[in-house]
Design a protein around this nucleic acid. Structure first.
Lengths: 239, 239
DNA sequence: TTGCTTTTGTTATAGCCTATAACCAACGAG
DNA sequence: CTCGTTGGTTATAGGCTATAACAAAAGCAA
């Protein structure tokens, strides 16, 4: 877990003319998502610390929710004192954004893997079911990270919205891939997007309720509900 | 808006033996949800101030998200200074819980009204569609309040969980009512709960995506998606 | 009316947090 | 070896939650 592709954000532009404060290195730099393998040993160290910080952040998140995430505490836990961490993350929100982007990457990877694994001879139906299972499994395994994905507007209204929108694309692409073979060939091009969105919405609703304990608190078995969802998508595709 | 039934929480037990600090009246008391009409003029005033505080809180919430809600700022905005507000709300979380409970009440009321309005001669299908429309309309009209409902775990892990679970019941009850007549008479008693949950999950997923702008950012019209959801529930009910 | 109790407000404080400033040490390329 | 970049430190400014201690106002009872 916590591995993500170095997709976003290149290293910091080194042309910055002696910015004041500990924001000298504006915190944006370092290795993109989490990739530790980078050119200079300097950058490697940097990436490593960033990763440790992120890991600690995830722990805080898992234990106390988003409000419990404290740069200060992370820094102290890392052995460095307070403001030092601002050398690595521009601010609290930047760290959160990073975590969100990582989570999107991982979720998309899990979905893609499920789709690829079912590839060979399986029916489209089975591929879809596999995708659903993978999505659910990922969310249930790390609910705090799943929550992160759909709570962005909560902390900071308009954050790095573009980065987040971009990060969410791969998962959507996988959903479209899973859904396209279900449609008749005469379907209009927007149909796949619409169906994938229906799928996503249904899944998200189920997962949301499940990870907040709404099923167990009602004594309901989630599995048949997910099955129903799969059948509903198949039905909608053929209608 | 912001009207809710005085359902929960009676007035503070006046027997408390001289508790220290401004928590003398433990902040729990006052008029329940929002009902200003209460016995003594004292209590009326109290309820009034609580209401104003809540209104300000909702404004903060609408503008800056949950993290922007500050008791301090509310108090100052109310003309009183800082800690005074702790006479009215035990702490930040208590205020949030109150807002959540109110929101649940209002949502349930909106749903119930939709169901009642469609009552006379309409088909079960139309009643269901009306319910869906009402749910969506409520959420879209006040997204910040809708978010509140499903974000409880985010601020404070284990808050007044029982109060929240209890508050969510009426809405669920309405959903069950809407769904029951769709089922064949031979259906087992759990079927209605399961179907209502499916409905709720589907709706929640769609609404979540819609209020976070995922549809408009993809150029999708939400309406057909909600229609699909209605049809899916009808289909599931007859299967 | 007088006097006690409850309620509600005040200021002072402790503690935590984000974030910036100013300064210093170490690293590493040239 | 030298000097700029990078990473770390302490000091500081605000802001917030929440409690403590105290003072005034309101209500109730005798």
């Amino acid at each position: 877990m916590t591995k993500a592709n170095p997709a976003t954000s290149g290293s910091a532009a080194p042309g910055a003319p002696a910015a004041p404060g500990p924001a000298g290195a504006d915190g944006t730099g370092g290795t993109g998502g989490t990739g530790v393998r980078d050119s200079s040993p300097r950058a490697r160290f940097r990436g490593q610390i960033r990763d440790e910080a992120k890991a600690l952040a995830l722990r805080q998140l898992a234990e106390g929710g988003a409000q419990a995430l404290s740069l200060n505490a992370i820094a102290k836990s890392l052995g460095m004192s307070g403001p030092a961490l601002y050398r690595y993350f521009a601010n609290r929100e930047a760290l959160l954004t990073d975590l969100i982007v990582d989570a999107y990457h991982d979720l998309a990877a899990a979905m893609g893997a499920a789709l690829a694994a079912a590839e060979p001879a399986h029916q489209p139906h089975d591929r879809l079911a596999g995708l659903v299972t993978a999505y659910r499994a990922w969310a249930v395994a790390e609910p705090h990270r799943y929550r992160l994905l759909f709570r962005a507007p909560l902390f900071g209204y308009d954050p790095q919205a573009p980065a987040l929108v971009e990060a969410s694309q791969p998962a959507m692409t996988v959903a479209v891939e899973a859904v396209t073979p279900l449609l008749p060939r005469s379907a209009p091009p927007t149909a796949a997007a619409a169906l994938a969105t229906s799928l996503w919405a249904g899944l998200h609703g189920l997962v949301s309720l499940e990870i907040e304990g709404n099923f167990s608190s009602m004594g309901l078995d989630p599995v048949p509900l997910y099955d129903t969802q799969v059948r509903a998508i198949l039905h909608a595709a053929q209608a």
